[in-house]
Amino acid sequence: MLKKSLLTIASLTSMGFLPLAHAADQPVDNRWYLAPFGTFIKTDSDRHSDDGWGAGLGLGKMINQHINLEIKGFYNELDRDRTRKDWELAGGTVDLQYFFSRQRLAPYAVVAAGGMNTYLGGRNAIGFIAEAGLGLTYAVTDNFLLRSDVRYRYDNNQTHVQRGTTEFDDMTVNVGFVIPFGAKPTYVARAETPVADVPVAVAAPDCSTLDDDHDGVNNCVDRCLRTPESSVVDNAGCPVKLVLKGQHFMFDSAELTPNAKELLNGVAESLSAYPQKNDIEVQGHTSSEGSNAYNMKLSQRRAASVVEYLRAKGVRNRLRATGYGEDHPIADNATEAGKSENRRVELIWIEN
């Protein structure tokens, strides 16, 4: 049975590490966290015991966008009949978790190793344990995640706490939550790219004197030759920000005006002709007229209206609509000119 158990652990472990060659990207999140959990344990028949329950607490750190490292302690209790003493299991492991993605619903594989103290009928012994399994987390907020996993646990019983067997093979189901410390790191829109890092396109000899899309970047180095008018671009001529302001929505409404649709048509054509894989956040902003709650809803509806229009035009980028209400003015709300400047929608290209 020992040989079979070790082969099972080795197989699950190797499966968990197959994608590690792709984990060298910059971390999305690198915070410390606490992870309390409850446990249901499906016992090995060799224990001659009912299934049991337990609880524990983990302290971990998100190392990069794929890896979590966690130290965990636990206590389990298994019921037996009235003529025999209950099992009491207390121990700890070091867990290595591999996340296949860091989306809101994030699957992961886990391997763990550690020690466990077993108490049974007056006998007490410490042995080695190893675990392997699969799990899921669900991010309710940036600072609260639900988590559950199912694990195979190998328990070395060489000290013969229960005579007649030298090992146990249990199954555990853990359900709990994760509480990260501090604010979640956010992506920052690409502001500028050093010219030295931009590959020079092969073009006609006079390309350095041409700027077909009038974005301030000549055709020799411009990688996005159909940039929408009024875009803010990086040194490669690709947009990082586009502001829709003025009469782009009907009064007190999220309905786009013909002028806005014409400008967004140019955005859609540019993304189709020169596709960028960046996510795009569509931010809605208002002036200070009206209540803050109303302005927040109006800005969200206007941002969502832009997202819906771009999707209808075939834009494949991941688009996220966010309303900021009157919280981020760029001009003085005490004047009509300032209020007009503050009524805007911004498209922000997110750096991946």
Results as ranks from 00 to 15, higher is better:
124 N>G: 06
121 G>S: 13
110 V>I: 14
95 D>K: 15
111 V>E: 04
124 N>F: 01
87 W>V: 04
114 G>I: 04
105 L>K: 04
90 A>V: 08
122 G>Q: 15
115 G>L: 13
98 Y>K: 13
111 V>C: 05
87 W>G: 01
93 T>Q: 09
114 G>S: 09
127 G>I: 12
125 A>M: 05
129 I>Y: 00
87 W>F: 11
126 I>D: 10
109 A>G: 09
117 N>K: 13
99 F>Y: 11
88 E>G: 02
118 T>Y: 01
93 T>K: 06
124 N>S: 15
123 R>N: 12
96 L>M: 09
112 A>P: 01
86 D>T: 04
119 Y>E: 15
115 G>I: 11
119 Y>A: 14
85 K>E: 12
120 L>E: 07
105 L>E: 04
85 K>P: 03
86 D>P: 00
126 I>G: 10
103 Q>C: 02
120 L>S: 07
116 M>T: 12
86 D>W: 02
88 E>W: 00
87 W>Q: 02
116 M>V: 10
92 G>E: 04
103 Q>G: 08
90 A>E: 11
103 Q>D: 14
112 A>F: 01
97 Q>K: 14
92 G>H: 00
106 A>G: 05
97 Q>N: 07
94 V>A: 14
100 F>T: 13
90 A>C: 01
97 Q>F: 00
105 L>T: 09
88 E>Q: 11
118 T>S: 14
125 A>W: 01
98 Y>T: 14
126 I>M: 10
104 R>E: 12
89 L>S: 01
106 A>T: 12
95 D>G: 05
124 N>L: 06
93 T>I: 06
85 K>V: 00
129 I>L: 06
95 D>M: 14
128 F>L: 14
110 V>N: 09
128 F>W: 06
93 T>D: 05
101 S>C: 07
91 G>D: 05
119 Y>C: 08
107 P>C: 06
127 G>D: 12
119 Y>W: 08
127 G>N: 12
112 A>M: 05
100 F>K: 10
102 R>C: 03
107 P>T: 09
128 F>N: 12
110 V>S: 05
96 L>Q: 07
103 Q>R: 15
114 G>H: 10
125 A>T: 05
93 T>S: 04
107 P>F: 05
113 A>T: 15
104 R>G: 03
101 S>F: 00
117 N>A: 04
100 F>E: 09
108 Y>I: 12
97 Q>L: 05
111 V>F: 03
96 L>E: 03
94 V>K: 10
110 V>E: 14
112 A>Q: 13
88 E>P: 00
105 L>R: 03
105 L>I: 13
129 I>W: 00
128 F>Y: 06
121 G>W: 04
